[in-house]
Design a protein around this nucleic acid. Structure first.
Lengths: 274, 274
DNA sequence: GTTCCGCATGAATCGATAG
DNA sequence: ACTATCGATTCATGCGGAA
């Protein structure tokens, strides 16, 4: 049996072995980027990244339902003046593993990390790779429809966290539907480019994973009561968002501090929702 | 000798052989996309694309100056419900050929044409892959600076004491800043995400390659008098823009109709410039 | 309660210098 | 020669306290 609404402390490559086959509707995660969070994770060298990731993605392939989706938020770093190729190689290897590479969304980060270099500009986008087990999968496009016009800037990016909490408690059906309630029929489907600002104010976790990102994919690929898994949970963003949206969550986190933090946050959120 | 301001009729794989080594400052092109412009180009199947492209990129590597840059505007198509992997494979193979993969710019097409599919949204972005021969290349960043955001007006109006010195981040990210460095700035450097609307008006060429795209890269990677090459010239956009910007151009086009069209347009532009 | 304003923060990368 | 560490660079946001 798949445990519901649980987070685990450990390496997802190990923890996932206790999960049953075909039990998760959506995996959405942002794994540790190569060599970047050295102080908190082991710091995997770019050259070793694919070999490190593949056993874990094999487990993810096993636990995902045939109609489910895997969203992988990742970006290769620049090394010796070049973009490293490990993400490209990862896509090719995951296909050999049995995954279908359905789509690549662009997450455009408006307030990207500052800096100036002689040979490149600031990197203001990341990949959100969509993988599936089969060509037919669950997708609820109506749940992420947006007002005609500049959808992301005017709606998604501007909603503050308190706005979302208020809306959730009032309507209780997730934030995408609320938007459609307000604006009536002038709605269109979005594109594969997402405009979201990373949250820079989080003092507890160095990696910015804005709530709106998992929220958008949870709306798009799941319904209420479905199971969302984040095998690299970090400070718990995905689980918190899933819980608020009335989905079941499962999360795995290796780092003790993040695990504790996620536990605390989730307890807090669950109390709020009662 | 490299001919200046000339366009050639033929396959660039052949025509380029008459070009001398190390003679071009910037190559910017949008090659025929796999299998998409079948009626006009032969239609290379996605599975054959890499093998078709590599001999041509080998010639491009030869003719490019060591300080030069190659910008390849390309996007893989969706086939059987998946994104095809030929662009990823092409990047890996071009590196084996000797290219450095310096950067991947995202061209966000704001007015992407509408459409609805059961398993994906509209594709509103394309890759602009930057390749170089060596880690040191010519880049004129000042030429593409953009106006600073509105935030600066209020933020920089009054500086605190910490704003005037180098203030190191407390979280150990190693990032320090001196806010007073920004005062008096009107223009800032852009990021690696380009926001340009495709031009819809050109009925003569099936691929939309807006003038602003080659223009931006010509500004960034060349100075007046430099040589710009487009080995898949199409209706001549790159050559026309280069000419207007006082760069020398060379173009190659296989299709007779596009070749004639580009000739006519260029004659017209050159007359205007006199 | 609402708006305004000050301020810390961030999945970064390169080149130089040191071991 | 090859790796490790360190300093320099600089944009836009959301939060919290003040008005």
């Amino acid at each position: 049996m798949l445990p519901n609404d649980t987070i685990f402390h450990g390496d997802c490559g190990e923890v996932l072995k206790s999960f049953p086959d075909n039990s998760v509707d959506l995996i959405v995660t942002s794994p540790p980027y190569a060599d970047s969070r050295k102080s908190t994770y082991g710091g995997i060298h770019p050259d070793d990244y694919v070999a490190w990731f593949l056993p874990r993605s094999a487990e993810l392939l096993r636990v995902l339902k045939p109609t489910g989706t895997f969203i992988l938020n990742i970006k290769e770093k620049a090394l010796n003046g070049e973009r490293h190729t490990y993400v490209l190689e990862l896509i090719l290897e995951m296909r050999r593993q049995g995954w279908l590479w359905t789509e690549e969304f662009v997450w455009h980060k408006k307030n990207a990390y500052p800096g100036k270099w002689s040979n490149r500009f600031r990197d203001s986008w990341e990949r959100c790779l969509q993988f599936n087990k089969q060509r037919k999968f669950n997708m609820y496009q109506e749940a992420v429809m947006v007002p005609i016009g500049d959808w992301a800037k005017t709606r998604l990016a501007k909603l503050s966290e308190t706005d979302k909490i208020r809306d959730t408690s009032k309507v209780g059906s997730g934030f995408g539907k609320n938007v459609s309630n307000w604006t009536g029929r002038d709605m269109v489907y979005p594109t594969n480019v997402l405009h979201l600002a990373p949250e820079t104010g989080n003092r507890n976790h160095s990696a910015t994973f804005p709530k709106a990102l998992p929220e958008w994919f949870i709306n798009l690929f799941t319904q209420e009561g479905d199971v969302v898994l984040d095998p690299f949970l970090g400070s718990g963003t995905t689980a918190i968002v899933a819980k608020r949206m009335k989905r079941h969550y499962n999360g795995i986190e290796l780092n003790q501090n993040y695990y504790d933090l996620a536990q605390r946050e989730l307890t807090h959120v669950e109390r709020l929702l009662l």
